Amino acid sequence: MQVPPVFIDIALEDQTQELRAYLKSLGAEISEERSPKGIEDDLHKIIGVCDTCFKEGNEAEVELVLNDIVSIMVLVSPERAENIILAFCEKLTKAHGQKLGEVCSKALWLLYQSLDERSPMRYPVYYHLLLIAKQTDQIKAIFQDIEQLKQQFSHCPLSNEELQKLYRLLHEVLLRSNQSEQAAKVMIELLGTYTDKTASHAREDAICCITSAIADPKTFLLDPLLSLKPVHILKGQLIHDLLNIFVSENLTAYLKFYKEHKEFVNNQGLNHEQNLRKMRLLSFMQLAETTPEISFEAIEQELHIKKEEVEAFIIEVLKTKLVSARMDQSARKVFVTSTMHRTFGRSQWQQLKDLLSSWKNNLAVVQEGMKSVTAAQVELMQQQPQAV
């Protein structure tokens, strides 16, 4: 097996010539001679055949070659590097296989980090990183959360079109990697890029956002979606009606909708059994908001479950941490301590205000009580005879 030369501490022209010679030795159709047109032309030709080393199956050698190309590329002036960077990105996204994909991802990540924070080329490099992550399930290596992503591009703001393209791909990659919660946040960010004038063009994105949120087993607060302009545009359509059911209706309403629009639900890629599970949990939350003491019989009737399934269902609810409660099997009752609200509107804000006001008043009472105790202790000490 041939070992590629170590391309360090030599002039760029010699470095490109060494790369040419190495790739030619692997069978690439490239001359060993440097291009008279300069480094940029050399890089174009090298990148055009750099995938020759992919066939060797030695990831360490591939990584060495790709990193060397990056080390030359970042020294090319920004105004002349654009086409070279794009060609490099395109070539690496065509690599096949998990290990090779990981090596290509590392090389692109090195390039991304080497570019100036204000460089507009960071966007296409990151986009191609996502394309590779889609194939190799390496999304965690390049994406942590939406806030960090925004910070990465804060010095070179992206256009709405670029953001939308990036968020769509990121959402797809996160879903494929079973990061549904992060995917939902990205989709909400995507819909937030549309204005009143452009909201009507976001129909597919809005539908995708709704179905993703409904399908996500960890997402229970869907109320914020209704305030998004692209979702509001869908009002009056079946998908908006279905969302409203998951926002504020109960299981009976969902069963009625499914009976009348079974084909529609299935065509959205939604699983009816998973929908039933989520609607039962949401319906129980709604019941717990107004009924601190719930009988097993009420749970059977409201949630359409069998008598022998009630205890298992309550345990499942408690595991989600959506509701804090105590189950009394002998009394066949559930005593609710607290529950997460399905919607957070004016009444919930008023309830929170009343709770905080009560807390403030209680603290004032405690403070006055402490003052009284302190004053009594001081008075008692003053009344005691002083030692001679």
Rank of each mutant, 00 (worst) to 15 (best):
H171R: 13
I72P: 05
F220R: 00
N67R: 04
Q329T: 09
I207Q: 08
S35C: 06
I85Q: 11
E29M: 06
N271K: 13
I85V: 15
T136E: 14
V365S: 12
F220C: 00
T52V: 12
A11F: 08
V378L: 10
M1Y: 11
E181W: 09
E172N: 12
R168E: 10
L149G: 13
L318K: 04
E368Q: 08
N67S: 03
M327C: 15
L26M: 06
G38M: 12
V310P: 01
K55G: 09
V334L: 11
L281T: 14
K360T: 07
G57Y: 02
R122Y: 11
E302V: 07
K24R: 15
K45F: 09
D42T: 03
P4I: 11
E61H: 12
L270N: 03
M285S: 09
D223S: 04
E13I: 14
A87N: 15
L352M: 12
M381Y: 11
T339E: 05
K24Y: 08
R34T: 09
Q386S: 09
F335H: 14
E260W: 00
E289C: 11
A376N: 07
A183C: 05
L66T: 08
R168P: 04
T16D: 12
S212A: 05
F296P: 01
P78Y: 02
V65K: 10
L166P: 03
E40F: 10
T374G: 05
A253S: 12
Y167Q: 01
V103T: 15
L66D: 14
H96L: 11
L131H: 10
V323T: 01
M370P: 02
A253N: 06
I210Q: 00
K150S: 07
L75F: 05
D68T: 12
A184S: 12
N362E: 13
P120D: 10
E162I: 09
S212I: 00
P4G: 13
N275K: 02
W349M: 09
G192P: 01
H201E: 14
A312Q: 15
T219E: 14
L355N: 04
A28S: 03
I315E: 13
L100F: 03
Q383A: 13
N361F: 06
Q98M: 09
I239M: 00
L221G: 07
G236V: 01
K278Y: 01
E79C: 05
T252L: 06
T195L: 03
E260H: 02
N271Y: 12
N178R: 07
Q164M: 07
G269T: 04
H341R: 09
D328L: 01
S154P: 04
P124K: 11
L303C: 07
L318M: 09
R80V: 12
I8H: 05
I72F: 10
A141F: 13
S372K: 02
R168A: 04
K371S: 11
A81Y: 09
N271M: 06
I239D: 01
A288P: 04
I305G: 13
K256Y: 11
V231H: 00
H171F: 13
Q138M: 11
E308V: 08
N362K: 05
Q179P: 10
F296M: 02
F257I: 00
F54E: 02
H155E: 15
L130F: 07
N58K: 10
N250L: 12
E61G: 07
Y254K: 02
Q351K: 05
G192N: 11
V366L: 12
N178C: 14
V373M: 07
D328T: 06
E289Q: 10
Y126I: 06
